[in-house]
Design a binder for these strands. Structure first.
Lengths: 151, 151
DNA sequence: GCTTGCCCTCAACCACGGTTGAGCCCAGAG
DNA sequence: CTCTGGGCTCAACCGTGGTTGAGGGCAAGC
């Protein structure tokens, strides 16, 4: 079982897959979409820096709460491209993300409370209720498949 | 401009579209997927009950916070099929939904706080951090396109 | 020198949540 | 009687987020 020649600080795609729990095909996909980067060996194999694990973890965690890959890519693009991101770099990233998350949380809480309130007050029978007349809340949304509002 | 013959308590697809802010094609789609129902006139046109507006509002509100149509259909299937749902019926529905929403809110808050904590404590450099080793939190997820865990 | 395991690319396919367009029916107004 | 504005069906297409499979390369071990 030949382990690919790997300088200790670099990871093969299989190693990243194992350590991150993400399929190799997904890593290829992320690279095509510009969310992660690799260098190539003389024989054209990908090598990832260990920082990639952090990126992938960030991608999955963000995705898990419903943020699109495009938005995640844009966020990651804020990180410095040539030096290894410092804790401070990640802090800046997380600051904008926090706002986004706060908004989403507020939306969810609003829906939850509205559901409860509407039931409580019986207004589900009234068209003036936010729930039954949601354009007040949700606004007009454009075309295309989309399960969540993009940030 | 001929308005279709419509007994005052029934709505055409165009009327539902106008009042709900949802495209006609989406309403057709929802009907195909079993989220809403209609009866047909002698000339094969759909007629929707006014309750459909409530359903559509519920669908959009739920979708807006990232719940899949399949899950919404399952929830709506809890409503009585032959009589008009009472406030009590909607209350039962909203009770299960509330749990679901509470879970999602908790997940979002966890991610937000983890982001902040990890930055604060510098542990983004440690692989033992939840964020950088997310399988502790997120679990293993199956195949297929999915931006959010289905309920 | 062949098998095994890892890697590569490229194209096809999948589910989801719809939209778009072609071709047709039907009713009322001019 | 034709034109117009609803409505109908069905098939094709779109973006997102991937997976699967075919066909091939390279290196280590038997």
């Amino acid at each position: 079982m030949p382990r690919p020649h790997t300088p200790f600080h670099e990871l093969t795609v299989g190693q990243v897959a194992d350590r991150s729990g993400v399929a190799i095909s997904a890593l290829h996909f992320y690279e095509r979409k510009g969310l992660i980067r690799s260098v190539r060996t003389a024989t054209n194999q990908r090598r990832f820096s260990r920082e990639t694990l952090r990126r992938v973890a960030f991608i999955r965690a963000s995705q898990h709460v419903g943020i699109s890959l495009a938005a995640i890519r844009d966020a990651l693009d804020q990180l410095p491209s040539e030096r290894t991101p410092t804790p401070d770099d990640w802090a800046q990233l997380s600051a904008t993300w926090r706002t986004e998350l706060d908004d989403r949380i507020a939306q969810l809480q609003a829906l939850r409370d509205q559901l409860t309130d509407c039931i409580g007050c019986g207004c589900l029978s009234l068209r003036s209720c936010h729930l039954t007349n949601p354009r007040d809340v949700l606004g007009r949304e454009g075309a295309g498949a989309r399960r969540l509002p993009h940030p």
